[in-house]
Each structure stands twice: as structure tokens, then as C-alpha cells.
Design a protein around this nucleic acid. Structure first.
Length: 432
RNA sequence: GGGGGUGUGGUGUAGUGGCCUAACACGCUGCCCUGUCAAGGCAGAGACCGCGGGUUCAAAUCCCGUCAUCCCCGCCA
């Protein structure tokens, strides 16, 4: 018999259906027993009459399959339910579950830590699972848009010989008789592939940061949505591309995730043709004048929140580009601003008070890049594998990266980025 | 790397020197219940209060150490 999904049941009135899934909720009432079955599509109520023998064996989260008739009943949720004629228990939890999942998230009374400790169970919760349905659509939208724009999806090594910034914040791994590192970014490789003739590339993949941070917005392994493109005129091409990209991604989520967005009271931002942009220097002036906040160096988290408040109130946008970061704040491959060589043609994108993107135009001239590497006190010899492409003809180019978990987190108003990672790796968590 | 907080049944909390033989809610076990939907009723099991040491007539409660964990900052996506 062909399987019917829970979500399809209301369309099968007066038909016989075959369902498979988990027992989400169990309510025995004397000789009848209500059970809510959950499968990948959602939940549906089923009812078992006069089968105390079977009802007795059922437990929450038992895996079952059943055959039954779909009937209309005003008393049932959604006005219909499945009258069970045949039920088979495929698997039963041997003991009490460590956490409850069959009630609204707000009524769960379980700390995030505990939820993560028992992640597979936690992920069964419809509200938690919804996060990843949204994330999958975000990522799908990313791929879809870029593919249509002529970008090639690529895969670059995660085991690398050196970092992109000079050696800190890398996880060492034993690579036969040498020490290698987990890639903190596909930066070098995506640039090399632009120069290898693909011109436009993107990658969805993990990156590793060995920073010992322990905050609600940092992970030590996260999914980076990376793009790099050749033949740009300036970083403005990238800002324009990201605006169109985000508009596409958000449109897709709005269209396909109405239910999930509602769960989190999330509203998809309208992305204007031109996302507002300010330079870092302007940002600092605004912080000083409007919020009386000194912020000499980079923007701290509070500054990011204040700037987004400003953008929302004055510019009517939840998104804000901050541009022209000073050279010392950016990696050696960042293109200096021709009008002020102490600055770079780089940018960050803030979304609801959090940085979700960093990007910029890169240096494409070999000599300039070597000089920049030396300027950092680094040895160009260590970057020969990277530099070769610059000796063989490299177009002006640039790119950016979006943190997938951060994007998900901000869209859904999650309090902790860990919620947007299936199995988050943080300072102390290595399992599950 | 710096700062702050918290560790009490499976989960979430209360209790901050003696009335604690540790309370409450949910979960769990058993019984009852033919319309439940965060079901209800009755009965029951389950924690030597993170760990080690100390102070005290008396410690879940105070002190020291240790481990674990959460949050903020630095840094970043």
C-alpha cells in the first residue's frame, strides 16, 4: 500500500490510508486511545478503539505504521482524523525520554544546552525542525540564484597547508608526517578558481575557526556561503550582487516557508534595489552624534545593533552595508581604496544588528599582492601556491561570504546561533 | 584571552544556617475513564542537593579548591 503523509490526510476523506511515523502524543481515554502521529510532513490525529492490548504497548516516540480510514469529525483537530484498523509497532523507546518534545516550544521548559545534548530528539520538535527547513530554503535560494547568474558551484579543500590571515585561529590536524590545518575560509581557493577561468564561483561548505570565543553568535565550525567573481569594476558590483541575491533568497523563503516563519513571528525583509551603505568613518560619526558612543576601532556588537537601529529608523531598512574598512583591519588580499590607500574596498553587511557578511574587492596585481603580504610581515614564499595564478593573468575580482547559521538566526530572531546548526561545534561541545 | 553568573530526581525550578526525613510543575509506573487535543482523576517510584575539603552543636544553604555549564566582551560570519 502506498504511504500517505500526515499533511495529505485531509485530502483523503473516506479513503483508506497507510501512514508511517512516530507517536508524537498519546492520550488514552478509557477504551479509546488518541494518538498523534508525526512524520516528516507534520502531524495528524489517529484514534484506536477497543484495543487496550495495543494501546498499552504504545509509548511516545514509538515508531509505528498504521492503516485506517480518514473520516470527518468536528471534534478532531483540523476536522478530520484517521480511524485505525491496523497498527504495527516498529520500534519502541526502551526507557523514558530524556526530554519532552510534544508541546509548544515555550512550554518545553528545557534549556538550550539540554536540547543540544539530546539533539536528535530535540530536532523532532516541529518548531525546532522548522529552523532547518528554512535554512535549507535559504541555501537552495543561494545556489539557485547564483547558478542562474553563471556561477559554478565548486568544492575546495578543507585540509590546507596554511591559513589565509597568517596562521592564528587555525585548527591543526595531523596530516601523515606533517601538520596541516582545517580551512578557516575557502578564500584562496575561490580566488584561484576565478583565475583558473571559471570567472564566477560559489561554494557552500564548512569553515573552521579555532577562536576560543563563547558567545551566542559564534561557532567553531559553520557553513559559509561563499562567492567570488571576476571582472568587477569595484566592490559596488558586489554590493549590488548581494542585494539581488538576498532578494531572491528571501523571496524563496517567503514563498515556501510561510508556516515556519509564522512559528518564529519572522518577517522577511524587503531588500531595496540599493541597500543603504555607509563608510566605517561615517558609522563612527553616527555612533558619536546619535548615540554618544565612542568607537575608535572596529564596530563592537553594541555598535552594530545601534547602527542597524539607525538604518531602520532613518533609512527604513533592516540591512546596512558598512564600507571602507582600514587596511589593518582587513586581510592582506583586500584591495586598497585608490582614493585613500589607508582604506580598503571592503564591506560588511549588518542585518538586524549582526554582521552576516564580509567581502570586498581583492588585489589582482601580483606585485601589489606580494608587497601587501610583506607589509604584514609574512613571507610570500609561503603563499606560492596561491600567488601563481596572479602571475598568470588575474582579472579584477572580489567576493563575499555569508554565514548560513547567522543568516538563519537573524531571519528567525533566534537568540543563539547554535539553534541554527544541526550539531553545533563550540568551545566545549564536540558531541553529539 | 578578560569579566560576570549558575550547578538540587529524567526535564524546568523553589528552598540561601536548624521546622529538609528536600518542595512544586511536567515527565515516568500502575489503576480508572468513549472525544481527547499542553486531556483528567487516584495511587506510586525517582535526588544522599556537581565533586573534594573546611567552618559550625547543626550545611543544599557559609568558606576554599576543583570540574561542568551559561552569558557578556575581545575577535569574527
Amino acid at each position: 500500500m502506498i504511504r500517505t503523509l500526515a499533511i495529505e490526510v485531509p485530502h483523503k476523506l473516506n479513503e483508506k490510508v497507510f501512514l508511517q511515523g512516530w507517536v508524537y502524543n498519546l492520550r488514552p481515554i478509557g477504551k479509546l486511545c488518541f494518538l498523534v502521529l508525526r512524520d516528516r510532513s507534520g502531524t495528524v490525529q489517529a484514534v484506536l478503539y477497543d484495543r487496550a492490548d495495543l494501546a498499552q504497548q504504545l509509548r511516545e516516540e514509538s515508531v509505528i505504521e498504521l492503516v485506517g480510514y480518514v473520516r470527518r469529525d468536528e471534534r478532531a483537530p483540523n476536522g478530520c482524523e484517521v480511524l485505525i484498523s491496523d497498527l504495527k509497532i516498529l520500534s519502541t523507546p526502551p526507557e523514558a525520554l530524556p526530554i519532552q518534545i510534544n508541546r509548544p516550544r515555550a512550554a518545553l521548559n528545557t534549556r538550550l544546552e539540554t536540547l543540544l545534548e539530546h539533539r536528535v530528539l530535540g530536532l523532532r520538535h516541529p518548531e525546532i525542525g522548522a529552523i532547518f527547513r528554512v535554512q535549507a530554503e535559504l541555501v537552495h535560494g543561494f545556489r539557485e540564484f547564483l547558478t542562474h547568474e553563471g556561477f559554478l558551484e565548486v568544492h575546495t579543500p578543507k585540509i590546507v597547508a596554511s591559513g589565509t590571515e597568517g596562521g592564528t585561529e587555525l585548527f591543526p590536524v595531523q596530516y601523515f608526517d606533517r601538520t596541516a590545518y582545517l580551512a578557516q575560509s575557502p578564500q584562496f581557493y575561490k580566488q584561484m578558481l576565478v583565475g583558473a577561468g571559471f570567472e564566477r564561483v560559489f561554494e557552500v561548505g564548512p569553515v573552521y575557526r579555532a577562536e576560543p570565543h563563547s558567545t551566542t553568535r559564534h561557532l567553531n565550525e559553520y557553513i559559509s556561503l561563499d562567492i567570488e567573481m571576476g571582472f568587477i569594476e569595484s566592490e559596488q558590483d558586489l554590493l549590488a550582487l548581494e542585494a539581488r541575491l538576498l532578494r531572491h533568497i528571501f523571496a524563496r523563503v517567503r514563498e515556501r516557508c510561510a508556516r515556519e516563519l509564522a512559528i518564529y513571528s519572522a518577517t522577511v525583509p524587503d531588500v531595496p534595489d540599493k541597500i543603504p551603505q555607509i563608510t566605517l568613518a561615517e558609522a563612527q560619526e553616527i555612533l558619536q552624534e546619535r548615540f554618544n558612543k565612542q568607537n575608535a576601532g572596529d564596530l563592537d556588537p553594541e555598535s552594530e545593533r545601534l547602527l542597524c537601529r539607525y538604518a531602520q529608523e532613518e533609512l527604513g531598512c533592516e540591512l546596512l552595508f558598512v564600507t571602507h574598512y582600514p587596511r589593518e583591519k582587513r586581510p592582506m588580499y583586500a584591495m586598497p581604496d585608490p582614493e585613500d590607500p589607508t582604506l580598503t574596498r571592503s564591506f560588511d553587511l549588518l542585518y538586524k544588528g549582526l554582521e552576516i557578511t564580509t567581502g570586498g574587492q581583492r588585489i589582482h596585481r601580483y606585485e601589489m599582492l606580494v608587497e601587501s603580504i610583506r607589509g604584514r610581515g609574512l613571507d610570500p614564499k609561503n603563499f606560492e601556491f596561491y600567488l601563481e595564478v596572479f602571475k598568470c593573468g588575474m582579472p579584477p575580482h572580489g567576493g563575499f561570504a555569508i554565514g548560513a547559521e547567522r543568516l538563519t538566526m537573524q531571519l528567525l530572531n533566534l537568540a543563539n546561533v547554535r539553534e541554527a546548526s544541526f550539531f553545533p561545534r563550540d568551545r566545549t561541545r564536540l558531541t553529539p
